[in-house]
């Protein structure tokens, strides 16, 4: 009787120790769900969803505070991926957060820039180069097209320029032609 209790107790101690060790050794840092959601978000950091960046929005989705259809730059495809990841139903982009636009980059009109640095402070990815009373310019390769610099400019010299398709970025078209019932065509 006693030996049986001892054996069970020993088993419990050994297994407990193994589990305890594993929980320290293989500890998961942070919330992996947040990381997964963040990987789907487009990292525009535009704040159109109502959160200060993509990561905070990802955290809000993971907590269940935010819906999955608040990210206009991610578009329908982004929502679909989030729905897949979270096992939810797809829903169209909510209108209050904006509409999906073609990808663009900001452009500073050198004629009018007064060098106020307000746009530099607004840029979430430090993609604007300049100094006080010096003309500013956008590093196009790093611009995410978030439009956050457009609003603060006191002289309205920043415009969003859509990225044109080039030979390098051109994509082969989907070879399937959808057949639609007569009347709904076009």
């Amino acid at each position: 009787m006693i030996s049986a209790i001892l054996v069970m107790a020993l088993g419990a101690v050994v297994l407990g120790a193994a589990l305890g060790y594993a929980s320290i050794k293989f500890k998961v840092e942070g919330d992996p769900l947040v990381e997964k959601i963040d990987a789907i978000l487009p990292q525009t950091q535009c704040g159109q969803c109502g959160y200060p960046g993509c990561k905070p929005y990802a955290e809000a989705i993971a907590k269940g505070e935010a819906d999955i259809n608040c990210c206009p730059p991610g578009g329908d495809e982004g929502i679909r991926k989030l729905a897949d990841l979270l096992g939810r139903e797809f829903k169209p982009l909510s209108g209050e957060h904006g509409v999906e636009k073609p990808k663009s980059v900001a452009f500073v009109d050198e004629q009018f820039c007064i060098g106020c640095t307000l746009c530099i402070q607004a840029c979430p990815v430090d993609a604007i180069v300049g100094a006080a009373k010096q003309m500013h310019t956008i590093v196009a390769a790093q611009c995410t097209g978030c439009e956050l610099c457009v609003e603060p400019c006191p002289v309205d010299c920043i415009a969003m320029v859509p990225i044109a398709e080039s030979v390098e970025t051109w994509k082969w078209r989907y070879p399937v032609f959808e057949i639609k019932p007569a009347g709904t065509a076009r």
Partner: peptide, 20 residues
Amino acid sequence: AREQEKEAADVARERYEFRL
């Protein structure tokens, strides 16, 4: 195209986190 977008997003994430 997707891979390029993903690369751009990774760079943006890194730069955003660096700024923070």
